[in-house]
Design a protein around this nucleic acid. Structure first.
Lengths: 342, 342
DNA sequence: TTGAAAGCGCTAACAA
DNA sequence: TTGTTAGCGCTTTCAA
């Protein structure tokens, strides 16, 4: 690697091919009026020089960077990874490229990240969640690009939304657990402050339990989100000692639920006979472990795919995003052995 | 969102603040000679206009985009996520930002991705693995930026390396299993064609088994990488029916090993008493599941952290990367219950 | 189908 | 400490 060698530019290619640099530019665009023979000669010259298009300059000139900025809470999470895959798949074969950043589940970090991403002049931005700092909201509103909030149903959306109700997902699970005869149901989640989607799931849990006239005091909080398998196990340890007659546990996520399951195995507590268990997110582990864990599938991949669809439509129609508005995906209850009637 | 409104530029801010745009530029750089009062006035004007720096233009002008391109095989993998975290952490507080792409474990996809990333004029590029298409190698060599290959120890490095020996990791595991008295050891992995690191782990397994004079025929291949928990379970099903006297299974990854474990549970096979088990990667699950699974920790986070360190040094010294050369991290054997002496 | 001129928004280099 | 000038590499626009 020698950092000094200057990279060839369009002008260099143009000179070698005996054309103007404008013609070189056309040779690199798919649908442009150019003589096929001219194009071949140009591509040959470009290959010879090892020429690589500079999208930095192209973006400045055309005012189209080709970036779609995306923020997710964590890169180490199969759910968000699926959303990113859906989005990337949806943008494949287009000129758009995902510019990804993560927030560590913090709205302050999100604010910093959004500020940084916007300096790259993305043509659209997709954020996870519907709650932001005021400054972040303002930046997004001022950016004059399509903004898509995902993984949530914000009451006051900035622009477009592709989400689902986290609270409703919990209600599905409570209803299901109650239908199998459980009533002394606990909730295991992380600290409420940061993970707003986790907090919504807890809120949905409490609301539904109250509605059914059940005890809502069995709430275990442990660690900052995302809560790990180990923290799930720890939370259950505390929980079962404080409320030994608990007959079901709803968890903020499948990894947490799996942690609970392992702690049950260590303590010789039978799942589902003594304790029923459910998680959230339809992670692979919940389907593979023994017993398999009941969960809710929020359709992560579809969220990304739909977000990509909205972006393409919005950019096509030059920012007329309003008719597309809000898209609510339906979360799917996946009933498995861990909550079988005992 | 209205896409039509034009974003304010430095010239707009300069006009409002009553200075030249060069002074505005200085106000946004940390260490530049500027009167604090001037800077305050400029920042106030910028805030009033909702001005956001255009890094696209800044990069073109300064020939420093601030991007570090990074390729990983999959975004849905805790190991690579840890490497990315290490890198991001190492680049925090610098002007550098990670531009991430994933290759789906395909060198052809890697070639396409690298071509795309290089159009963004990154100041350095970090790739996973040491095997590439010829065209990809050429592009990387011609890019005139630091290139860091990771997660591997290529025999003919392009530039710098931060890696470990995948084959050696397998040898550690075979040695360990043999030391606990197992000799009829099987290997579970994905199809060999694509995942070169998985292939190296298999190669190390076979080499060590041969060296010890043991049977090397028990090789189960299933699906394309990364192999899932479910595929691990499936592979074990096939395996144990074909070679019922197998007394240990080494897996290409922890998720695969966990899949094997669940299949053992379903079949009533005791781990470690009837079959010992080990994985690779030190994923959280291998430490939490019951019994915990013996694994090798390749220090994913450290790979990223060290890569970031090399980049900073290389960019500091204007591309004099050669003295830093190759960094081999030592993989750590983590012995757990799944391979206890029976 | 091709080319010439102008300029995208910023910063390097130099001058004051 | 601030300003002026020139130009980064490309695409838009218009003309041929």
């Amino acid at each position: 690697m020698s950092k000094d060698r200057k990279q060839p530019t369009m002008a260099d290619v143009a000179r070698l091919a005996g054309v103007s640099s404008m013609t070189v530019s056309r040779a690199f665009k798919a649908e442009s009026y150019i003589n096929p023979a001219t194009r071949d000669a140009i591509l040959k010259a470009a290959a010879e020089l090892g020429y690589v298009l500079d999208n930095t300059a192209a973006g400045l000139s055309s005012r189209k960077t080709g970036f779609v900025a995306v923020t997710i809470p964590s890169i180490n999470n199969a759910n968000f990874a699926d959303t990113i895959r859906g989005m990337t798949d949806g943008l494949r074969q287009t000129r758009l490229q995902v510019l990804l950043g993560y927030t560590n589940y913090s709205v302050d970090e999100e604010e910093r990240l959004v500020a940084q991403l916007l300096t790259r002049r993305p043509e659209a931005i997709v954020v996870t969640g519907g709650r932001h700092t005021d400054a972040c909201r303002r930046m997004l509103q001022n950016a004059a690009i399509p903004v898509i909030e995902t993984w949530d149903m914000p009451s006051d959306p900035i622009d477009a939304v592709v989400g689902f109700s986290n609270a409703h997902a919990s209600e599905l699970l409570v209803d299901h657990l109650v239908s199998t005869g459980r009533t002394r149901i606990a909730f295991v989640g992380g600290d409420v402050s940061d993970d707003t989607r986790g907090a919504d799931r807890r809120r949905g849990f409490v609301r539904k339990m109250q509605e059914l006239g059940l005890d809502t005091s069995r709430l275990a909080s442990v660690g900052s989100p995302p809560i790990s398998m180990r923290e799930g196990a720890q939370a259950f340890s505390d929980l079962i000692e404080k409320w030994p007659d608990t007959d079901a546990v709803a968890c903020v996520s499948d990894p947490a639920a799996f942690g609970v399951l392992t702690e049950c195995q260590r303590r010789g507590i039978a799942v589902p006979d003594q304790i029923a268990l459910c998680g959230f997110g339809a992670y692979e582990i919940s389907d593979v472990c023994v017993p398999a864990i009941t969960t809710v599938d929020p359709q992560c991949y579809e969220i990304g795919k739909n977000a990509a669809g909205l972006i393409l439509k919005a950019i096509d129609t030059n920012g007329k995003l309003s008719p597309l508005g809000t898209l609510e995906l339906e979360s799917i209850l996946r009933i498995r052995s861990s909550s079988a009637r005992s």
